[in-house]
Design a protein around this nucleic acid. Sequence first.
DNA 1: TGATTAAATTGACAAATATCAAGTTTATAA
DNA 2: TTATAAACTTGATATTTGTCAATTTAATCA
Lengths: 273, 273
Amino acid sequence: MSETELDLEVKTPRKKTRQNKIVDILATKVACKECSLHQLCLPSSIDGSDLEKLDNIIERKRPLKRNDHLFQVGSQFTSIYVVRSGSLKTYSPTVDGQEQVTGFHLPGELLGLDAIGKGMHPCAAKALETTSVCEVPFENLEFLAQELPTLQHQLLRLMSKEIFDDQELMLLLGKKTAEARLSAFLLSISLRFKQRGFSSSEFYLSMSRNDIANYLGLAVETVSRMFTRFQEDGIIDAERKHIVINDREAMQQIAGINECCEDIAAEETQKTL
Amino acid sequence: MSETELDLEVKTPRKKTRQNKIVDILATKVACKECSLHQLCLPSSIDGSDLEKLDNIIERKRPLKRNDHLFQVGSQFTSIYVVRSGSLKTYSPTVDGQEQVTGFHLPGELLGLDAIGKGMHPCAAKALETTSVCEVPFENLEFLAQELPTLQHQLLRLMSKEIFDDQELMLLLGKKTAEARLSAFLLSISLRFKQRGFSSSEFYLSMSRNDIANYLGLAVETVSRMFTRFQEDGIIDAERKHIVINDREAMQQIAGINECCEDIAAEETQKTL
DNA sequence: TGATTAAATTGACAAATATCAAGTTTATAA
DNA sequence: TTATAAACTTGATATTTGTCAATTTAATCA
């Protein structure tokens, strides 16, 4: 089988990849310039040679199949990951042997930042569909950040953003009715797609209703009923995983999203586009 | 009034503070060695001269009175803060003009890490009691981290810890019944006191029942009833803000805290003590 | 393809929590 | 100190959400 071959090839940083057409395409496609990780460097005027340094420490991993794990609970922390395509969920085990979903990760988003502190992953990451990620060995990144002040700055910014986003979600989870939670969740997903240049009014949810319910702290049945209610009210069209947002304002109303958040979100969107 | 005088004196880093007795005491008391911020440097074998560099960029602010703001929503981000004594809450405004409490900050804990990304504070911070904080101008800290690899590492670790802690709280807020939330909340406070060398079984809650309810996404009445229930069951003694935890295991049971969390918590405690 | 399993929806009912209202205790200020 | 306000507690009731059960729809695999 050529699978292992391909595996090895893809894992090698783009140096002598011009031999194999497939790898070449992959390598071209995921150069840092094009990659969502560009937030780490590009906006900070890192020039060609510095960018190449960053490019060189990044490993492109073989795509994960649905339900494959990127890392397990308690596994040693060595790298942070960036979703290139597809999506993943992170989850922790609970007392009663269940999963508790802690997050969803869309293209361009990071995984593993919560593991730096303790040197091990406090949650597991599982692919929701066929998914490819870039692996960024953290020691190398730290070392590089030491000599590139703008990279250090971007790294701190990104971690701060993660903290900010988590707190946004705590706002969502803390209070709110079931419909407010689901509405805020859909708006959040919508915004994240928009920030990556995808449609914000029409998208596919890669996660199951069960995952959504688990994540929002609701029963599956409640989530299902809320989807139905939103459709009856004409606020969304939902056919399984395919979602169309018809009345964004109504959803914001239901979610109880305040102007401040919206301003910030809008601002950020402009920055990214 | 000598208040402004004191203010100016205290704000000055410890260089020529030997003139004023009061200031001297304060300055001595808050040297980095003693300060909770030592997590930023001490465990990483930063030696005397480096420690002094860090010490020099830190400003000790005049104590805040109850209900004083440390920063407001939307205010420009310049510094991160470390609670020296007392406590604060952070909160965001909601649509209906209410507050939503996003966190409580005890001695040794950091504030403002969520503001780095956007350069402005997404929430406000208000003192729950008389509170003193250290102000760490972020530009200086970043600059210093550039030349001290261990400081950069610690800074990243601390931010990661913040992300980890936030996700722990999302676990708490996401699912769970009212009693599970309150129990987990009290255990979390307890652990945080323990990590700072205070008693983990007996402490004062500086925040009101209202703040707790708001934070946990519950009605005040529900929180009050849960306190009553826990007392009736003999799990805690609660007289207003004075809390005694009698049956920690029962509380862990109620909170649904899994072994993983406990292991990590225990480990971390050892490290700190 | 058809058979089997998993995911999603819907209804009926029970349990949990919010809301409203009243009363009590504690804190604050004149 | 007393007056006033704020914080907290308790009870009665209404609403929301979870649970159980049945059904429908979609996905997977031989």
